[in-house]
Amino acid sequence: MRLARELGLILASLALAFGVGALVAQLSGLSPGAVYRELWRGAFGDQYRVFQTLTQATPIMFTSLSFLIAFRAGLFNIGAEGQMYLGAFFGAWAGFTLILPQYLHTVVALLVGALAGALWGFIPGWLRARRGTNEFVSTMMLSYVAIYFTSWLVSPRGPYHGTQWANQTVRILPSAELPRFVRGMQLHWGLVIAGLLCALFWYFLFRTPRGYELRAVGQNPRAAQYAGIDVSRAMILALTLAGALAGLGGAAEILGTHRRFIEFFSPGYGWDGIAGGLIARAHPLAVIPAAVLIGALRAGGMGMDRAGVAPSDFASVLQGIVIFFVVAPELFRIFRRIRRERRVLVHSQP
């Protein structure tokens, strides 16, 4: 029942957003019909495109989970982008430095990436819990720090400048590669890992005491404290997990897709995670379709551009509109509420 209502709400928001998007396209001198047709074709037109959509959705699943886990604890992790960059670099570093057997090497490199991201989540978490530092601002600021720090590491003056022609590291060893499903396609096992993590975090949040504590802190920190929950610990845990998830996503993206760390490699997957977490209404299992939706907008946007019907960035505008309609809880209940309030008013008349 609740599921049906949530689903209906999301679908209504999406329909409304796509309607407004059509209006924007029309006003910009584009043809809405052609735009949506090419968007669909670019995202789901054939097997190759479906794979491209899923490739884009993979890092977004990680970053959406990252945003979500902090959000459930009442915190905002706006810095997934930077945590992802640190995870990506250190994942790559483990991939070209350590000598380990196949598979084990991949696992270790992923964990190193997760650890680097976790550190970048722990710092704002600790600052929030112990010093009251606004985590929204601090995760955002630390995100810039991580992005430019990794950029320096692979710059010509940095220690890991791996190739002459671009600011990137050397290639990771074959033993560290995250295998791909089909030759010639970028889609890799990171997708499966992300899907499993969605399930795992559903279990963690709704079936374990730690997850319960985390949600309790998110709903009412003072009540949680009276109930004997260590609020500081829950906050630090939430942001550390958030960082670890984003870092893991970055490492998976490098080990599976790029096979080396490249500066500024992310087209904004960290930001997409905020959108994904919100569209999923902070439910871990709903992250999977939400991330696929955003991945489809990305892949479809490129298709639109290739077909010449609209710049790929129209997809970002569409995504922004979708979020607006998804985040207003009252929007679809407002008419009912107005009716109810009027009734209350009538009844309270003497």
């Binding site: 706006i78 930001w271 970002s316 995504q319 922004g320 979020i323 607006f324």
Partner: peptide, 16 residues
């Protein structure tokens, strides 16, 4: 969340 939505929307509009 609403503020974040403003940021994401404008970022898209700026490029578009």
């Amino acid at each position: 969340v609403s503020g974040v939505a403003v940021n994401l929307l404008v970022a898209g509009i700026a490029l578009f």
